[in-house]
């Protein structure tokens, strides 16, 4: 079966993001960019399914600027077979889901393995939206995925613990942190990935309108917390919590 893995180019999680002085957004010039960490987990899961003989082909898709090629290459180096880049910027989850739907209809995967959340917009929405547009089942926040008999058994991280659902294929699964630990691509695999094909498309090629629905009125620095005081002992801490902060 074919697997589709959407990977997003985002500001690396180690970067201390700064709000632009004119409050229109955050500083992204000359900032390290990486594959969204949850998408690395999704790629890893897809590659493992291929190694187990369950998946036959893995297609990595990114929607973003031309440089998102780099993130597709990373997915190819981890073990994906080919890539598709849809060149579009400032897309929202609904627009991304519409583009992914068009690609799903073209490629016919049985499973889309993606991240639960992009660490830039923190939306946590695209997988659920894609499942809705396709009329497919969804297994979000997955910490375990088993494929058998035309179904996916997905263990999900929910508020009080874990929940298991059985999804009819085709399905969308979104990865949570504990699904696996993504591998580092080896040098030979990075070399091999350079030869794997990447197709480039525009939203119009897929007949999709990605006009945003949201306008960002402003982006601000959140209120800063002031560092408080260091206390010298446990007794002092407890006394302060009782009499000064009055929280115990």
């Amino acid at each position: 079966m074919k697997l589709l893995v959407p990977v997003k180019r985002v500001v690396d999680y180690n970067v201390k993001v700064r709000v632009k002085a004119d409050n229109t957004g955050v500083e992204t010039a000359n900032v390290k960019m990486s594959m969204n960490p949850f998408d690395e987990i999704a790629v890893e899961e897809a590659v493992r399914l291929k190694e187990k003989g369950v998946a036959t082909e893995i297609i990595a898709v990114s929607i973003g600027p031309a440089q998102a090629q780099e993130q597709i290459r990373t997915a190819l180096a981890m073990g994906a077979d080919r890539g598709i880049l849809v060149e579009a910027e400032n897309t929202e989850p609904l627009g991304v889901a519409k583009l992914l739907k068009a690609i799903v209809e073209r490629e016919g995967p049985q499973l889309v393995m993606m991240g639960k959340q992009a660490i830039d917009d923190d939306m946590n929405a695209t997988g659920q939206m894609l499942a809705a547009l396709l009329g497919w089942s969804q297994g979000t926040y997955a910490s375990k995925v088993e494929l058998a008999d035309g179904a996916a058994k997905v263990t999900r991280e929910v508020d009080g613990g874990l929940e298991t659902v059985n999804l009819k294929l085709p399905a969308i699964v979104t990865a949570d942190l504990r699904l696996n630990e993504p591998r580092y691509a080896s040098l030979p695999n990075i070399m091999k990935a350079r030869k794997k094909p990447i197709e480039t498309l525009k939203p119009a090629d897929l007949g999709v309108d990605v006009a945003p629905r949201l306008s960002i009125l402003k982006v601000e620095e959140p209120p800063k917390r002031q560092a408080g005081v260091k206390v010298g002992s446990v007794a002092e801490l407890v006394a302060k919590l009782k009499t000064e902060a009055k929280v115990i």
Binding site: V11, Y13, K16, V17, R18, V19, V26, I119, D120, D121, D122, L214, S215, I216, L217, K218, V219, E220, E221, P222
Partner: peptide, 10 residues
């Protein structure tokens, strides 16, 4: 957005 590093009005 960005892990609480920025607050957007949309």
């Amino acid at each position: 957005i960005y892990a609480g590093n920025a607050l957007a009005t949309v």
